[in-house]
């Protein structure tokens, strides 16, 4: 029997996915990087090399905003790493306890904020924290801490941290689920062997379980990093495109949106927008590379 040289069915199977993926994702991605090297002068697209980046990094008007957004974005990420992931791990450790009753119920309930849209989350917290409605001050009053209350979202020094914590509240379910998945795959024999040696309870968590779930913690860290440097929706829903008060909650996503789409008096500039997008791309690429080459390869994986 003679076989045709080209196996057409492989082409048929691959073509639709490759076509859509290339046309709508990869091509625009590289096209955006390319557009960052041009500018518009009198209705004409002119190649300017790295001029846009020079403007972005060094021109006082742009550089202030850019470094502000980048710094805010790092702070946003730091809060997630310091608050969201430890809480997620702690919840997962509790939920994975054998014979804990209602575990499914807790798990499903704690995951609910994660499925809500940023619009809902942003507005709901805005209302709750609002001094007009007064739920937050009233509740602090009950526990005698009313003096701590401030209109957090309206103060420059608190707004970003508050929004980061709202985002933590929303997404704590993801590390919880992934760590939970890792914890339940640890075989009982290992834990029992530890018990024989007198390692139980908390010390079993620190000495046995935590080293075993480190790879999952690595994955969560990089997911958090990519997600945070790509964030936009929550800030936009809660504070608008101007990321107020006085740009104190501006992150790369909102900065890029304002720049390329225009907002109020500012005209949209797709080329500067592309330059910011390229900046985001580079930051994310650096993060992913640090993870792939610096962390993942050095992490010990245990055969279980």
């Amino acid at each position: 029997m003679k076989r045709a040289r080209i196996r057409w069915h492989i082409l048929v199977f691959l073509t639709p996915a490759v076509l859509v993926y290339t046309a709508v994702m990869m091509f625009p991605l590289f096209n955006t990087l390319r557009l960052a090297l041009y500018t518009r002068i009198d209705q004409e697209r002119v190649f300017v090399g790295l001029d846009n980046f020079r403007t972005l990094f060094f021109d006082p008007i742009w550089a202030d905003q850019f470094w502000n957004a980048l710094g805010n974005n790092f702070w946003f990420f730091v809060i997630h790493m310091l608050v969201q992931n430890p809480i997620g791990i702690a919840l997962a450790a509790l939920l994975s306890h054998p014979r804990l009753r209602f575990a499914v119920l807790y798990r499903s309930a704690i995951f609910i904020p994660t499925i809500l849209s940023f619009v809902i989350v942003g507005f709901a917290w805005k209302l709750i924290l609002s001094p007009i409605w007064g739920i937050a001050p009233d509740m602090l009053d009950w526990i005698g801490l009313k003096s701590l209350y401030a209109p957090w979202l309206g103060k420059e020094e608190y707004a970003l941290t508050t929004l980061a914590l709202v985002s933590v509240w929303q997404f704590v379910g993801i590390p919880m689920m992934l760590i939970y998945a890792a914890l339940i795959t640890i075989p009982d024999e290992i834990l029992e062997a530890g018990e024989v040696d007198g390692i139980t309870g908390l010390s079993a968590f620190w000495k046995i379980k935590l080293p075993l779930i480190l790879p999952s913690i690595g994955i969560i860290s990089i997911l958090t990093f990519v997600g945070n440097f790509n964030a936009f929706d929550l800030i936009y829903a809660a504070q608008g495109a101007l990321a107020g008060p006085d740009y104190s909650t501006d992150i790369l996503g909102t900065f890029m949106y304002r720049t390329f789409f225009g907002f109020q008096l500012q005209l949209g500039d797709p080329h500067m927008g592309s330059a910011i997008a390229s900046g985001m791309f580079i930051v994310i690429l650096i993060g992913v590379c640090i993870y792939l080459f610096g962390i993942q390869t050095r992490m010990r994986r245990y055969q279980m």
Binding site: V24, T32, G253, F260, G273, V288
Partner: peptide
Amino acid sequence: MIPIRIGTVA
């Protein structure tokens, strides 16, 4: 790993 949003302009 690369978010599609980065290509939004194009």
